[in-house]
Amino acid sequence: MASEAQGEETGLVFHPMEQFVVKPLFGGDTVMWYTPTNVTLWMALTVLAVFALLVLGTSRRAMIPSRMQSVGELAYGFIYRMIEDVAGKDGVKYFPYIMTLFMFIVFSNFLGLLPMAFTTTSHIAVTGVLAMAVFLTVTILGFVKHGLGFLGVFWISSAPLVLRPVLALIEVISYFVRPLSHSIRLAGNMMAGHAVIKVFAAFAAVLAISPFAIVAITAIYALEVLVAFIQAYVFAILTCVYLKDALHPHH
C-alpha cells in the first residue's frame, strides 16, 4: 500500500478498500460462516427493500396503481419482456429466477450507494456464486433438454467446414470464460466506482482542491447510480442470452 505510506507523509490518507471489509456485526474478530456480519445486514436490507417494493407496494392491488405499485409493475414488465425478447417464449418459465437475480442485484447496488453502506455485490464471492449458479443451471439445463445435442452450440454449422474446429475451440473457451466475466464485470464495476469515490473523498480533505473533489464526487456518484442499474440490467440480460443458448443451442 504505497499510496497509504505516501499519504501519511503528505497528510492524505487513502483507504479506498476499507469500505469492503467484512466485519462481524456484534463485535468479535472471527468470521465464521454463520456469523452475522455487515454482509448479513445489507442483504437483509435488500430483502426488506424487495419486500417493500413488490409486496407492500402492490398490497392494494389497485386498478389505477400508486407510484410504488407502478414501479413494481414496471420492473415486472421490464424483466418479463426482456426474457420474452431475448430467450423466447419458452424462457418465460424461468422468469422468477431471473427476477430474483435482478431484484437482488439492483437493490444491492442501490443500497450500496448510500453513504456508509456496504456493497454486497462488490464482493467476488457473492457475484461468483451468482454467476456460477447461472452457468451451472444453464449448462445442466442444456444437457437435460438436448442431451449431447447441446454441444451443437460450439459447432457453428453456418461457418465453412475448415474454420469450424477453430471456431469450436474459441467458442469453448468463451463458454468457460462466461462465469468469470459475468461475475467480475459486476463486482469490478461496483468496486471500482466505490473506490474512486473514496479516493476523491480523501482528496476533499485538502482545502485547495476540495471544491473540485466534491464536484467530482457528485459527478461520479451520478454515474454510479446509472452504472448500478445498468450492471443489474446487463447481468439479467446476459443470463437471458445464456438461457437462450441452453434452450435453442442451434444458431
Binding site: V22, V31, M32, W33, Y34, T35, T37, V39, T40, M43, A44, T46, V47, V50, F51, L54, V55, T58, G72, Y76, F95, P96, Y97, M99, T100, L101, M103, F104, T120, H123, A125, V126, V129, L130
Partner: peptide, 23 residues
C-alpha cells in the same frame, strides 16, 4: 463462507417472496 451462506439465504428469501406473493 460467511458471504456465500448469507447470499444463499438472501436469494432463497427473495425467491420465496417473489414466487409465492409478489409475482
Amino acid at each position: 463462507g460467511n458471504q456465500i451462506f448469507w447470499l444463499v439465504v438472501t436469494l432463497v428469501a427473495i425467491y420465496l417472496i417473489l414466487d409465492r406473493i409478489a409475482l
